[in-house]
Design a protein around this nucleic acid. Structure first.
Lengths: 249, 249
DNA sequence: GTGCAATTTGCATAGATTTGCATTTAATAG
DNA sequence: CTATTAAATGCAAATCTATGCAAATTGCAC
């Protein structure tokens, strides 16, 4: 079996199962543990999946595509985008950055909505081509392959000229005390900048990101205007979050 | 068995199986391992498959083309990108805009090439994520959905800070007297700007775009440094083009 | 046919990759 | 803290690649 073939199969497996252990892969592909690990490292370098201790999980954009193929498979995103849509007013300027949730939200926006979307996420720009009345402004800068967004001082500079009404922040972790954080330092700077040029900021997060703590803090929970989850606002998981001034939807 | 016959069989095998090892091919075609490897190298040079360690896998682009009912005989894009690649020097700054030819060229770039690609084409940026050593700078601005590129004064402004070595211009028509032209006014302005910030400009065009005349002129043939087509430079179709200072590859 | 050049083919060799295993180091769970 | 599991590292065997070379084949002119 060819190396490329194996790697292809790993990606296919991931796009259906979202996650695999290296042991599983070794048995499935009938090669040693070491070989699959090396494959996974290579694939991670190419930004096609994320390696975790003991296995690998699907890269957001790939899994997004896969789950769309399966139709309504992942309902959590559906619930979140319904709620988030209520925050969007016609003729407003919306700032959106990277992340699966934002991608899904953008796709689900009503076709007749007339807004301007400013983004550093090329995937979002192309996805919004389906919405004839939405104007898309792409932020320039160095393209950061791993997270498929533009980043860096050029992107920051571009933001100077923007005054957005609402910022949909993609985020990796939300914690009642520790605030919002992500895995990438440069990205955390950018997100702070984006907050500063937006009148209001909203974070749309799936359940698994609640109560986690990632490496680079973006802001406190109090700095956020809205928090959108798939849970009911009175759900006990969210109890601690109500102590802040953030409005929970 | 003739060489051509063998190569045809290799492609057929690939189009059904998607992958094949060189050992398999050697047995199947009853020639030495070396011969099939040489065949595979040739086919790869013509852009008809992807060679990997130990075998070959079907070229995604090819299968896409095949599914559209187009023959594989004249892979124009493959020929063009091979020629165009010769113009690209390591560590150079390349400017590329929209168009199918540029997209294909980007995909076909050698994996070990260390260059910086500046583009207003988000698809190009994501496609180049596969090339670990290529740095990608995305030009910001209004996203023009129809042609899937960024455009407008912001994009123009971004270009002020660029000094590129080579500009690969996507173009709709090339005519010996009437010069290069496209269908979109704003885009023609942008292309002129791109030319002005690049040391040299090259146009890669498929045959059907030669001798056509589109609405908005970008420049004269004389302003171009290289013209790359799938034809042999001495082909009679190109006779008129030789009267200009442009170098034809 | 003969002679000659260009191409193609198979083989030998040297250099690279890939692979699985053993060992050491690090991370995780109980 | 300890036991367990995974990750990283080094290494050797196997496999694949690239290259040069000579034999075989082909094409072409005479």
């Amino acid at each position: 079996m060819l190396k490329e073939e194996r790697q292809q199969l790993i990606l296919e497996k991931l796009s259906t199962d979202k996650k695999v252990t290296l042991v599983e892969l070794g048995q499935l592909l009938k090669v040693s543990y070491d070989s699959v690990r090396r494959d996974v490292i290579e694939l991670e370098d190419r930004g096609l999946l994320k390696k975790v201790h003991g296995g690998a999980i699907a890269n957001s954009y790939l899994s997004m595509k896969a789950s769309r193929g399966l139709g309504i498979a992942n309902n959590e995103f559906g619930v979140i985008s319904k709620k988030a849509q209520k925050l969007i007013e016609n003729h407003s300027i919306i700032l959106m950055d990277g992340g699966t949730t934002n991608f899904y939200l953008a796709e689900q926006l009503p076709k007749n909505l007339e807004i301007t979307v400013v983004t550093n996420n090329p995937h979002l720009a192309t996805a919004l081509a389906e919405h004839p009345k939405i104007e898309v402004i792409l932020l320039g800068g160095s393209f950061y392959k791993r997270y498929q967004i533009t980043l860096g001082s050029k992107t920051m500079q571009d933001l100077e000229h923007i005054n957005a009404d609402l910022y949909f922040m993609g985020i990796n972790s939300v914690h009642p005390q520790k605030g919002l954080a992500i895995r990438q330092y440069e990205e955390s700077l950018l997100k702070r900048k984006m907050m500063s040029v937006s009148r209001k900021t909203v974070a749309c997060v799936i359940e698994e990101k609640l109560n986690r703590i990632e490496n680079y803090k973006v802001c406190d929970l109090n700095d956020l205007d809205y928090l959108v989850t798939s849970l009911h606002p009175t759900d006990k998981t969210l109890a601690q979050f109500h102590q802040s001034r953030v409005e929970i939807l």
